[in-house]
Amino acid sequence: MTDYQIRYGAEVAEALRAGRPVVACESTIVSHGLPRPDNLRVAREIERAVRDNGAVPATIGMVAGELVVGLDDAQLTRLASADGVAKLSVRDLAVAAATGVDGATTVAATSAVAAAAGIRVFATGGLGGVHREAAQTFDESADLTTLSRTPIAVVCAGVKSILDVGATLERLETLGVAVVGYRSRRFPGFFITDGGFDLDWSVESPEQAAAVLAARAAQAVQPGALIVANPLPPQEQLDPELHDRTLTDGLARLAADGITGKAVTPFLLAHFHAATEGASLAVNVRIILRNAALAARIAVAAATTATGSGR
């Protein structure tokens, strides 16, 4: 009988046994989020950012049906270079394993697998959320419901501004997912520093974020994720006027071409890349590297807190 259990990279397995800080990283940015050959270079830079800030990176993905926590460089290269790599959400994991495919894990799948592996912190770029016109299409990312039941801290730059940001925050509130800004009481808009909505809470340091995780574990009341929304510094964001102009034009083209469903996000991101002459891609890379660094510092603080409390 085939063994479908999760396999761990050697470094990650040792770090988890020793209680060292580990940060989960997704693989969809490698296979679907960035163009070749930038995708492999950036994937390695993400792992380097985690290491440089004191933690062990655990990039999660599927290779020939085997779900791996802590891809090695050869496996990372395979997912970055191969055609036909499947995009895997939580619902797809078992089917993909049984059919022996190569797959890249989304935010939802990476969060769920990381939490099952005992990893407490996950770094990503931006979350999925509620799509515009969702009242008619019911188009909402599985990220939201997965995070409502997955005990992990997710460091992100909010949700992509092509989504309905306000509705996404409302859904997160309904689902009981805690959202804190990192040194900000405003929710970031991915490409832009300010997504236009206030937050009730903020944390000022990795240690304070780790304290939230410790309090949640001690209380054993909240089952879901902690979202740490990490805005880009204003000088590093996409020019807001360019952003708004590009978004308006992209939405108009979307409607004119009748594009709906899963095709919406890749269409709009490709439009941003073309219309901004690559500036949005450069911002995307800055986002994920900054989030990886912050996630590592939170993981280090969380590990130190756990050691100090005797756990």
Rank of each mutant, 00 (worst) to 15 (best):
V165H: 15
I46H: 04
L67P: 11
A18S: 07
A24K: 03
V155I: 15
P188D: 06
P35L: 10
A215V: 15
A94W: 00
S89C: 08
A123Q: 01
Q75I: 01
D102K: 05
V23N: 07
A282Y: 00
A134I: 02
V22D: 05
D73T: 13
D73F: 06
A299H: 11
Q222I: 13
V159T: 13
G224R: 02
M62V: 14
E204P: 06
V212K: 02
A142L: 12
V130N: 06
G310D: 13
L238I: 04
A49L: 01
G258V: 14
A142Q: 10
G54A: 01
P234T: 10
A97I: 01
V69T: 05
P188H: 07
V107A: 02
T248F: 11
D83R: 05
L144H: 11
R253T: 01
F190L: 04
L40F: 08
D3F: 09
K160Q: 11
S111G: 15
R171L: 08
V95I: 06
L169H: 09
E173C: 11
G84W: 13
L289V: 06
A80I: 07
A252S: 06
A74F: 09
A279P: 01
Q75S: 02
A217M: 01
F187G: 09
G84N: 10
I227T: 00
D239S: 09
V42F: 11
S280H: 15
S309D: 08
A210D: 01
R186M: 04
R7M: 09
R311C: 14
Q219D: 14
R132D: 15
A299Q: 03
V85T: 13
A134P: 14
A15R: 01
N291P: 00
R253C: 04
I152R: 02
L34C: 12
A296L: 04
A134M: 04
I298R: 00
A55S: 00
S184T: 15
I288H: 05
S184C: 13
R36Q: 10
S141R: 03
R7S: 15
A218C: 11
